[in-house]
């Protein structure tokens, strides 16, 4: 059983193709780390996989309601407390894993503190705890370790390892070693080419052929 499969995917940022021919598959228990220089299109690829934007070409196939996405920004409401933030997402996803999520991400002491009074790293931990309360099997993460300290990175690495052990899968764009046994996919060879060299055409170009 494949949790997430991506075939011959081409993605565009603001209408300009950035990546093409990307393909991979995630089996249960597997993690895939995306690498590549800034601006190569990691975020665009992840947003496409998460279903936020349509692919230019190719397919993304995932079991229904299996993917959850963690973006650069955490979606944390600063006037709500840590517990309130997490409870909201738990209700949205229909789970009741708030207590365990707070315990796993070392947030229990902060439960009643307003998110406005959290440090950047603490806020990030809260954002990542949302992945736990989603109860979904495939985590798509964009630089999840930004602003985390060394201990928190290890903590989060352990959380992801538990996900994989429980039959989940993770797709991570990161440059930091999370201590996972993960395959690495370098996106540099998939950079979109010029049309004259076999690159994908954007929809408007196609009309001219």
């Amino acid at each position: 059983m494949t949790l997430l499969s991506v075939q011959d995917l081409a993605v565009a940022r603001a209408g300009v193709p950035v990546l093409q021919g990307v393909g991979f598959a995630l089996e249960p228990g597997r993690a895939l780390v995306l690498r590549g220089p800034n601006g190569i299109g990691k975020t665009t690829l992840l947003r496409t996989v998460a279903g936020l934007q349509p692919p230019l070409a190719g397919h993304v196939e995932a079991a229904p309601d299996s993917v959850t996405y963690a973006a650069h920004s955490d979606g944390v409401k600063s006037t709500l407390t840590v517990a309130e933030n997490l409870t909201f997402w738990a209700q949205v996803f229909g789970t009741d894993a708030v207590a365990t999520a707070m315990a796993r991400m070392n947030l229990r002491d902060l439960a009643d503190r307003r998110a406005a009074n959290l440090s950047a790293g603490q806020k990030r931990r809260l954002g990542l705890a949302r992945l736990l309360v989603s109860g979904r099997a495939v985590w798509v993460m964009d630089e999840p370790t930004a602003s985390l300290d060394v201990d928190s990175v290890q903590l989060f690495g352990a959380v992801v390892r538990d996900l994989l052990a429980a039959g989940g899968a993770a797709l991570i764009a990161t440059h930091i070693d999370l201590g996972l046994e993960a395959e690495v996919l370098d996106l540099t060879p998939f950079k979109a080419r010029k049309v004259s060299q076999g690159g994908v055409r954007s929809a408007f170009d196609e009309a001219f052929t």
Binding site: L52, Y69, S73
Partner: peptide, 8 residues
């Protein structure tokens, strides 16, 4: 973004 990828 997160709401758009949620079950709501």
């Amino acid at each position: 973004d997160l709401l758009a990828t949620s079950p709501v």
